[in-house]
């Protein structure tokens, strides 16, 4: 599951940022998308009665929500107006760098597998901010991107620590003795 995600989707590109406002707008879009995606995946797994994984995703959504709140606060403090609000396109990525591809889900997946997906997101987010920090010439952007990169690095460590609490998935983790259900 996750190997495909890494190979195909992890190709960050350097964005053109015309000021600190642009970076904040990107960061907000990235974190909001990640938060919403985790919340959706949590609901989706709950619908399919995988409560443990639902709880893992909910936890990740709460973590990302903290980021959203923090960025919103910064925007408020910076008194920046007319941040770009339209539809974002992530070049070389199918979703925001910190968002899980719903196609990677399985109804029987274990919390550890779910956290593996989260780990990829956090690493990708770190690399995204890091790329900005190292390639920009704007000192203000550099400082803020580096700060965000550092936070994502902390998240990577956090997720890794959580993962340790769960065992590796059994070989037959996706075994289901019942056939799929007929609907319409």
């Amino acid at each position: 599951m996750s190997s495909a995600t890494e190979s195909k989707l992890f190709r960050p590109d350097v964005p053109r940022l015309d000021g600190i406002g642009d970076l904040l707008a990107y960061a907000l879009a990235l974190e909001v998308e990640a938060t919403e995606r985790y919340a959706e995946l949590a609901e989706l797994m709950a619908t399919h009665n995988n409560r443990d994984v639902a709880e893992s995703f909910r936890k990740m959504a709460r973590v990302e929500q903290l980021h959203v709140d923090e960025i919103r606060k910064r925007i408020e403090q910076s008194r920046l107006t007319d941040l770009p609000t339209a539809h974002f396109r992530w070049v070389g990525l199918t979703s925001g760098p910190e968002s899980t591809d719903p196609a990677d889900l399985h109804y029987l997946m274990t919390p550890r597998q779910a956290l593996e997906l989260a780990l990829i997101n956090e690493k990708r987010a770190h690399q995204y901010y890091d790329t900005i920090a190292t390639s920009t010439t704007d000192p203000e952007i550099k400082a803020l991107a580096a700060e965000f990169a550092e936070e994502e690095k902390e998240h990577v460590a956090l997720v890794e620590a959580w993962m340790e609490k769960y065992p590796e998935a059994d070989e037959d983790w996706d075994r289901d003795d019942d056939p799929p259900v007929l609907q319409d």
Partner: peptide, 12 residues
């Protein structure tokens, strides 16, 4: 809540 299987492309 959709009844689609987790992993289904329709969620996207």
């Amino acid at each position: 809540k959709p009844i689609w299987c987790p992993g289904c492309g329709d969620y996207s």
